[in-house]
Design a protein around this nucleic acid. Structure first.
Length: 462
RNA sequence: GGCCCCGUCGUCUAGCGGUCAGGAUCCAUGGUUUUCAUCCAUGUCACAGGAGUUCAAUUCUCCUCGGGGUCACCA
């Protein structure tokens, strides 16, 4: 069974890059009827917060990414890590190192001065004397000093590292006894049964260290897929200044989970020429072997396009429901269908759609100057009056086509083109030149509001 | 700096020795529309550079250049 995981460290919000690796992991598990586990890497007590964990969970919930099983918190697993540290100590695969921080940094400085690679010098690797007084030991693992370590990566291929280039006896437990990242990752992934690791390629150079831990403990090494980073428009690492970092901000901006997930799945991954993927299609088609090798640049043009695509194709019922999050209650509006049909093709986001709707529903309090200039000709007031007569003489209409007929009648009777009536009427009803079809607008507004707006315009422009 | 990864239209990408280098987005133009938007059609735009290998390189190899990542008692 395929078991994947997402393992964020709760130092901040869930951002777009983290979300994408989470999505990939989730999809790959689902595709294989496997499990997608969640582990919170909160061993650094100083930098972690419960709020950040909650934010991540909240984002997952919004997007419908459900994890399987219980959430694992590393902060609650100290005894587990301690027992493995003891095991390595007992087996002679790890040892206590009494080098002080001062001595260590001195060592580094001389190495840097000599233009050498900074590495621990193995001073206590085979130490057997009496430990120095007053120093708490760290635990270091005995790493191979030479040889080749190959990371078999499903995205990058086989990546080989020379032990002497990258390894030294790295610390697996700090002076206070707490374990370090590369150590606990290997243990937790093993204990959780994770066999497919999909993560950012910033972890690629850590992987050899983790392999050393796997081997020291006799664990099976999982399959790795290191997915390339998402960069900002300058080609640099994504930062807070590159728009919304927190995934939940995308909700505030009016994007739907469908659009955001579709956008992200196509960033670094593709399936032929297909652009639109439902969640079910993603689960069916995603395969990490098709992940691109190169970094991609974050750019919202396509997100906007996808967003408008989904909004156009959502049912009015679903839209009305979604819109409640954007301060717009439409559920009881009797012209909901006409309203949404008329406006959903005009918005890139739900937020925009809500604003567009509110605009149509609000009686104009002013008229766009250039629109008035363009629309109001010498006979416009007469035309509006004629149309107004028609409307008030009619019974309450409900269909756009009814209003359309009325407009046609006026145009025919006065022997004028459609534009002669459409333009001033548009300004009267909406206050500007652009907007949805007037017949729909009038059907939405109803007889009395339509008459009110026409009367207002006649008064203002006579 | 050492080590590692990467390099096809502005952007997201297809390509896996022989293609008019394809799609999408963006942009532009035209059509539809009483307006705007939608929609449809058309168009502009790319293999970082240089050596090899080969009958043939975007594709394989090497070098250069460019970009990124990583080198902790952070994760």
């Amino acid at each position: 069974m395929v078991v994947t995981r997402f393992a964020p460290s709760p130092t901040g919000y869930l951002h777009i890059g983290g979300l994408r690796t989470a999505l990939f992991s989730y999809l790959w598990a689902k595709k294989n009827n496997g499990m997608f586990l969640l582990r919170i890497e909160d061993t650094d007590k100083a930098r972690n917060s419960q709020a950040a964990t909650d934010a991540i969970l909240q984002a997952f919930k919004w997007l419908g990414l459900e994890h399987d099983g219980e959430i694992i918190y590393q902060s609650q697993r100290d005894e587990i890590y301690a027992s493995y540290i003891q095991q390595l100590l007992d087996e002679g695969k790890a040892y206590k190192c009494y080098m002080s921080k001062e001595e260590l940094s001195e060592l580094r400085e001389t190495q840097m001065a000599n233009n050498e690679r900074t590495k621990y010098n193995g001073k206590y690797r085979d130490f057997e004397g009496t430990p120095p007084d007053g120093l708490e030991a760290v635990i270091r693992i005995k790493a191979p000093l030479s040889g080749e370590i190959i990371v078999k990566d499903g995205v990058k291929g086989n990546v080989s590292f020379q032990a002497e280039d990258i390894l030294d006896d790295f610390v697996i437990a700090r002076a206070d006894g707490s374990p370090t990242y590369n150590f606990v990752v290997a243990i937790d992934d093993h204990l959780m049964g994770i066999n497919q690791v999909i993560r950012g390629d910033d972890h690629l150079s850590n992987t050899p260290k983790q392999i050393i831990v796997y081997e020291a403990l006799g664990f099976d090494i999982p399959s790795f897929y290191h997915v390339p980073m998402i960069h900002n428009s300058e080609g640099k690492k994504l930062s807070k200044r590159d728009g919304a970092t927190d995934v939940m901000q995308y909700k505030e901006m009016g994007y739907t989970p469908e659009a955001l997930l579709n956008f992200l799945v196509r960033l670094g991954w593709s399936y032929g020429d297909q652009e639109i993927f439902s969640i079910d299609e993603m689960k069916e088609l995603f395969n990490p072997k098709d992940i691109n090798k190169s970094a991609s640049i974050y750019n919202t043009e396509k997100l906007d396009w996808l967003s408008s695509h989904y909004i156009k194709n959502f049912s009015n019922t679903k839209l009305a429901e979604l819109l409640t999050d954007y301060d717009l209650i439409l559920t009881s509006h009797d012209k909901k269908e006409i309203l949404l049909d008329a406006l959903k093709e005009r918005a890139k986001t739900l937020k925009e759609l809500a604003e567009l709707i509110k605009e149509v529903l609000a009686t104009p309090t002013s008229y766009d100057e250039s629109a008035v200039k363009k629309a109001f000709k010498a006979d416009s007031i007469d035309v509006l009056n004629a149309f107004k007569e028609k409307v008030s003489a009619s019974s309450e209409f409900h269909l756009p086509s009814d209003y359309h007929h009325l407009m046609e009648e006026v145009a025919n009777e006065m022997e004028i083109g459609f534009g002669k009536i459409g333009n001033p009427l548009r300004v009267a009803l909406l206050g500007k030149m652009s907007g949805p079809g007037l017949d729909s607008v009038m059907a939405i507004l109803g007889k009395s509001e339509t008459l009110l707006r026409i009367t207002n315009a006649i008064t203002a422009h006579s």
